[in-house]
Design a protein around this nucleic acid. Sequence first.
DNA 1: CGACTTTGCGTCAATTCGACGCTTACCATA
DNA 2: TATGGTAAGCGTCGAATTGACGCAAAGTCG
Lengths: 234, 234
Amino acid sequence: MTRGAGRLRTAATTRLSRDARPRVAVDTILFAFRDHQLQCYLVELARGEAAGQWAFPGRLVRIGEKLDEAARADLAASTGLRDVYLEQLFTFGDPTRDPRTHVVSVAYMGLTAAPETVSACSAKYAQGRWCGVERLPRLAYDHPQMADYALNRLRAKLEYTNIALYLLPPAFTFAQLEELYATVLERELDRRNFRRRILASGLLRRLSQERRGAHRPAALYEFAPRSLRTIEML
Amino acid sequence: MTRGAGRLRTAATTRLSRDARPRVAVDTILFAFRDHQLQCYLVELARGEAAGQWAFPGRLVRIGEKLDEAARADLAASTGLRDVYLEQLFTFGDPTRDPRTHVVSVAYMGLTAAPETVSACSAKYAQGRWCGVERLPRLAYDHPQMADYALNRLRAKLEYTNIALYLLPPAFTFAQLEELYATVLERELDRRNFRRRILASGLLRRLSQERRGAHRPAALYEFAPRSLRTIEML
DNA sequence: CGACTTTGCGTCAATTCGACGCTTACCATA
DNA sequence: TATGGTAAGCGTCGAATTGACGCAAAGTCG
């Protein structure tokens, strides 16, 4: 996206028209599984000509910044969340995607376990909120495409990676995991078969059931670190 | 990559230090299947401090250009090839990847059917040549990572898309297709099973065998256009 | 206590997949 | 024209995977 570009417009693009080059931005589609649905985090733009529209958080990349670090820092500034799983998605470079200037945006997908404390600190935004992916409002720029892309990627990677575990708390039950899968994939799953599949994949590790009373189901599971295959590509 | 940035260095980065932003480039790893091996196209840089080193063709993106069109145009300028299958791979943004300035590079993978006529027209390059992916020379910048990434992606997509067909001429035999798969995947394939798999996938269409004499094997195949699934994502 | 959920173990049949045998057609060349 | 090599094409067999589903033990909640 392009927050901040407005400030530079007169100074930069006019004076420099010959040397003008596209700017680079990062935008992050942050997912969480909350209230039995897959949600993503939206911000309401406060500045620029897209003010009032909803979008994904993001900003221009500064000289010397790594892309993922820029995305991570911006996410921390926009949501207060750190330790988010981030994965580069796709780079959107259509010159008309931002009506003002040519901004090339590197889209990231972020996954986090149901966060309770989220604050839209940054003054760039009027507000921030979680929104179920089924009923997104009209989004600014080409962010609808980004949402599609991210959702498709998430669905695809559910099938062959442990990526779902980033959407869950450190310990969880099979029922939770299955609900996550069924919801995101929009498909019924057979409990028995699902269990077999997941266990066969070796993604999970049975948690020692220290304190299980206190309204807790019998068995908890957690990440099996050894199966943290880096399928960053594909 | 960063060809052309040298020219702008004094003018741009000095004068503009406050407004300075990363530049955007596209680099393309172009593959072809030639001489029984998977090869990719390399250029020898003629300018800048990396002069003399080998790299993948690419250039800075100009205001108003789409990323894929920039990649396509640069490929045409560098190799004379048009009608290349292009797919965005990954965006490399480490600020130190180009020692001079911060250049964010959107890497593309290109596939083409064994091209006979390739000329390194562009004055940016001292020369261009095809090189087997097994014995690449030392590459400039972070292009070795790009090569790895592209190769991994190509291998992965061979398994579940028709992407291989972009590396073959319009009509080809099963033996050719199988050799391509076996070479790229570096693994022996059972002819019978391979045939079954490919036919089951519906990717191929039997060509009417009009003129088959003249040193031509019995059966030719071509693309089955209906199966041109767009699995651009994942 | 009784209804309900979660967990966990199995079964069965259809499908997929790897290893492999065999025949036919075409071509080159001795 | 006989022969050997290669591509094409068909089919089998057994192991592994996968979807549909039954069932019982354990825990939770009202």
